[in-house]
Design a protein around this nucleic acid. Structure first.
Lengths: 118, 118
DNA sequence: ATTCGTTATGGTTCAATGGACATAACCAAG
DNA sequence: CTTGGTTATGTCCATTGAACCATAACGAAT
């Protein structure tokens, strides 16, 4: 999903929504799995939580990011909307930008950290 | 201090420290005011909280970011160490990077937000 | 020695967050 | 018409974080 656990970008919007790596990873998981519950399982997150994050995002954007349906042979499923894919892509792009062009600063900050207990 | 309230960068380190805009602004305030309590007042933050944030930062880096002394005519004071200034500068540089080079993505994300209640 | 603004801590309370559990609704396939 | 996996919600509890309040220690200047 994302490889560097030390870097996490979090955006705060006027609407009150905060978009960080958790929601981004969840969106990506839904896109790849076609299901909210499957994406949640993959992240070891309860379905309850995964669903409420999706609900929160859908509510704060002017168009839903996730489109879901229930019932049927496979029980139902969920897909990212165009808007959802766009949001995910934009977030990833910002993350990438930070990692690439901010490598020097990040390295210096990390180097100054007191070594973690082993 | 920082002009765009909608953008907030938060770094998670292995050590467990989280460095976001709150601590960065606090560091900058201390640098400019020469006092933890003055910096706290400026941010409308209780001294209790300001001090504990400073303590937390000092503990997680291999050298203190803030150097303080108490007593004396002015009651005491606090200054940023070299390390403190470096950390602040690196954080600000990353923020700037995001705002400048990530302008397109940020604008698109903002545009998609449901308008906040007025 | 008193004063004054600051650093340095302790303790209590309150709200927000997240996790755990439980249950209902849904519907294609068999 | 039963089954199975999923979406959709409600409720309760533990943990966390922040907000408050209170107090001690400090030391230069007067």
């Amino acid at each position: 999903m994302t490889n560097d656990p030390r870097l996490s970008l979090r955006l705060h919007f006027d609407s009150g929504l905060t978009l960080g790596r958790g929601k981004a990873d969840l969106l990506q998981g839904i896109d790849e799995e076609g299901s909210i519950s499957a994406a949640g399982r993959r992240m070891k997150m309860s379905y309850r939580r995964a669903w409420s994050l999706v609900e929160e995002m859908n509510a704060h954007f002017d168009a839903p990011l996730v489109d879901s349906s229930r019932g049927g042979a496979k029980g139902g499923g969920a897909q990212l909307t165009e808007r959802g894919r766009q949001v995910l892509a934009d977030y990833r792009a910002l993350e990438q930008l930070l990692r690439d062009q901010g490598a020097e600063q990040l390295a210096r900050l990390r180097a100054g950290q007191r070594s973690v207990s082993t």
